[in-house]
């Protein structure tokens, strides 16, 4: 019980209650021994209970554990990290991939618009997104949700994303929703560790190696644009897109957040986002908001556009419009 070597008040009182000492002290020694045994057993049981944690070092190397935030990495840090990620992908998925880091183009501000008169809900955008962005195949997902809405209402409560029939249906229109790349993104404010931020071209990105997986951003997003990796990613080797960006479509680790990044590994190199390229109806318009000649600016100039949930003040760079 105790190793206190200072005399206790009782012990120092001598004979008055000294007769208690043998009774109290003897069992105390035995009790201390029993406690020590109990503590040892408890610790051993605890070690056994948390033993599944030993799988962490198998998947998380020391380099990964100690890796700094993206914005603090030097070019040589990046080279080393990208090489490590490439070899880890090779090891885990058996595929040679290239991880690049295209930076925002100076003076460019990306905007996106969807013509709701043209979209017919065929879902080609979702499929292209899933392939382009190396989505985990376990659950059928992409960064886009297509809402089937009832004509006569813009209320999403009357919409559904789980329709499974031929499109378009009579009396319905279709509204794809993905990250709105808000000017004032609530997800970025929410993140406790700055693992997500807005880049100079307006794209909100995630450092998948810095995110702690608290999912506060997912609660904060009004557009359901963020997704969590609930389990280790599974993608057939022949379906992996080897052209990968560090902040975009590389295979995301378990336990972290992900979101639409306007295919920055394509768009920052002058190509169109995968969803736009795949759209058979021509409903999607993408471009540089700072370029007066761009398609997106033509839409903003000539169509009456609206944004989702304008009242929240998030100021999306994503617009919707109807023909005529």
């Amino acid at each position: 019980m105790t190793v206190d070597d200072t005399p206790s008040p009782d012990a120092s009182q001598g004979d008055s209650n000294g007769h208690q000492l043998p009774i109290v002290n003897q069992p105390a020694t035995r009790r201390t021994a029993l406690k020590a045994v109990g503590a040892a057993l408890g610790l051993a049981a605890f070690g056994k209970a948390v033993s599944p944690l030993w799988s962490i070092p198998e998947h998380v190397s020391v380099d990964e554990f100690l890796q700094q935030h993206y914005q603090e990495l030097t070019p040589s840090d990046k080279d080393r990290i990208f090489a490590r990620l490439e070899s880890e992908t090779k090891e885990e998925f058996g595929v040679d991939v290239t991880i690049s880091d295209p930076r925002p183009l100076p003076g460019v501000r990306f905007g996106y618009a969807i013509n709701l008169s043209k979209c017919n809900g065929n879902g080609a955008c979702m499929e292209a997104c899933s392939k382009e962005n190396n989505h985990h195949r376990g659950i059928d997902q992409s960064y886009i949700r297509v809402l089937e809405m009832s004509k006569g209402s813009m209320d999403m409560e009357h919409g559904t994303t789980t329709f499974d029939h031929t499109v378009p249906q009579d009396g319905k229109f279709y509204m794809p929703v993905q990250c709105q790349q808000c000017e004032k993104p609530p997800c970025v404010s929410a993140c406790p560790v700055e693992a997500t931020w807005q880049e100079d071209d307006g794209i909100v990105v995630v450092d998948y190696n810095w995110c702690i997986g608290c999912r506060y951003c997912e609660a904060a997003c009004p557009y359901h644009a963020r997704r969590f990796n609930w389990e280790p990613p599974e993608i057939p080797a022949d379906e992996i897109n080897p052209d990968q960006g560090y902040l975009s479509n590389r295979i995301r680790p378990q336990g972290t957040m992900e979101k639409c990044h306007f295919c920055l590994h394509r768009t920052r190199e002058g190509r169109a986002p995968a969803c736009l390229e795949a759209c058979p109806t021509g409903a999607r318009v993408f471009g540089d908001l700072n370029d007066p000649e761009s398609d997106i600016n033509w839409v903003l100039e000539n169509k009456r556009v609206f944004v989702l949930k304008e009242e929240l003040g998030t100021q999306p760079n994503f617009f919707y419009f109807f023909d005529s």
């Binding site: 935030h69 700055e194 972290t256």
Partner: peptide, 17 residues
């Protein structure tokens, strides 16, 4: 989701928003 990255939340060594 990533308790191994808990240190990212610690001021100075991590990056606190």
């Amino acid at each position: 989701g990533r308790p191994d990255r808990f240190w990212h939340l610690v001021p100075i060594i991590g990056r606190v928003n």
